[in-house]
């Protein structure tokens, strides 16, 4: 499943980049993350409770950032596993300066397996849309709040 789109944040790319590299900001904005620890350079681990409405699952997640080109792009790999199944994502994030501040472009190929994929198949794309929007809204708010 491809999760791709763009999102406008009212802050310059440098500021957005900084936030994206900060485990504290990420933990506060990525949905479900309880904590996020940098276990190696640009590799973050944490446990997360992901879900929508009453449907929730606990995962152990690992986020690796690669090919960093500050402040314009990086590639990411997300590996989440837990009792409900697994989520594996590989893709790219790009930041482009825009009149409003920054356009964040994301394009991630996501593989979901296990129970969530079997039982929740019909909702997977909706869930990923909902969670992505949640994450970007929170990220934007956090950046804008910090800038103000």
């Amino acid at each position: 499943m491809r999760v791709a789109g763009e999102y406008t944040i009212e802050a310059p790319p440098e500021r957005v980049w900084e936030a994206l590299m900060d485990p504290e900001v990420l933990a506060g904005t990525l949905p479900g993350f309880k904590s996020l620890e940098e276990v190696a350079e640009n590799v973050f681990e944490g446990s997360l409770a992901l879900g929508v409405g009453p449907v929730q699952g606990r995962f152990n997640g690992k986020l690796s950032l690669k090919e960093l080109q500050p402040p314009s792009s990086y590639r990411l790999h997300l590996d989440g596993r837990g009792a409900p199944g697994f989520v594996d994502g590989e893709g790219e994030v790009k930041l482009e300066a825009s009149p409003e501040g920054t356009t964040l472009l994301y394009d991630v190929e996501v593989t979901v397996g296990g129970k969530i994929a079997g039982v929740g198949q019909r909702m997977l794309e909706m869930v990923s849309r909902t969670l992505t929007k949640q994450a970007l809204d929170r990220l934007s708010k956090a950046i804008v709040a910090a800038t103000e």
Partner: peptide, 19 residues
């Protein structure tokens, strides 16, 4: 969670997707 007819909630609980 409120349990009404349970036709969505109970399966979700049995799958352990809702707890």
């Amino acid at each position: 969670k409120i349990l009404a007819g349970g036709q969505s909630l109970v399966p979700a609980m049995n799958f352990r997707l809702a707890s």
